[in-house]
């Protein structure tokens, strides 16, 4: 099954901050709206993005909707809806808005779990990266929640090996 997604700036920045942008290569198709690219370009485009295959896409203003989100998040949601692909965001408001519109939405934590499930990270590496996401980036999650995520990852892994 083809795994296609569109990302707003959050996962691009957060994964870059923990040197894990290459995990985005797990997606068969990765779309980045021009608006989002301009947002990350305003800072510094993470160097690791050069090693990831992605397609820049334009979004009409009319498609962006009127939700109270920033331009990049609105554009990414519009692309996700139009092309029926997964939305990658680490923003709680964008996540909620997209979910309400029926979009399948996930974030950096899900990408780490995906890399683990596909065999690119062992359980310890996945746990380390999840903790790094919480400690070294502006990701929304608290320490306690990350530990629950790691526990869930471990439990699932254990159940599958039994």
């Amino acid at each position: 099954m083809t795994l296609a997604a569109v990302s707003d700036a959050g996962p691009l920045i957060h994964l870059a901050e923990i040197d894990s942008l290459e995990r985005l290569s797990l997606f068969d198709v990765l779309l980045i709206p021009q608006t989002v690219y301009a947002e990350i370009e305003a800072g510094d485009v993470p160097s690791g993005l050069d090693n990831v295959s992605y397609e820049l896409v334009d979004v009409d203003d009319e498609q962006k909707g009127t939700v109270d989100l920033d331009a990049g998040e609105s554009a990414a949601i519009a692309v996700a809806k139009e092309r029926d692909v997964v939305l990658l965001t680490d923003d709680l408001a964008a996540r909620e808005s997209a979910s309400n519109d029926g979009v399948d939405v996930h974030g950096s934590i899900g990408i780490i779990a995906l890399a683990h499930a596909r065999g690119f990270l062992d359980a310890d590496e996945a746990a380390t990266l999840m903790r790094s996401l919480q400690r070294e980036t502006s990701l929304f999650v608290t320490d306690a929640v990350i530990e629950r995520g790691i526990e869930l990852l471990d439990n699932t892994q254990r159940e599958r090996s039994e």
Binding site: L92, I109, G110, A113, H116, F140, T142, L152, T156
Partner: peptide, 20 residues
């Protein structure tokens, strides 16, 4: 309530990642 929401999201993400 914020922690509950965060936990729900993390669980959804881990579940999706392991099954995508």
């Amino acid at each position: 309530e914020r922690a509950e929401r965060e936990q729900q999201i993390v669980e959804e993400d881990v579940d999706w990642g392991l099954n995508a």
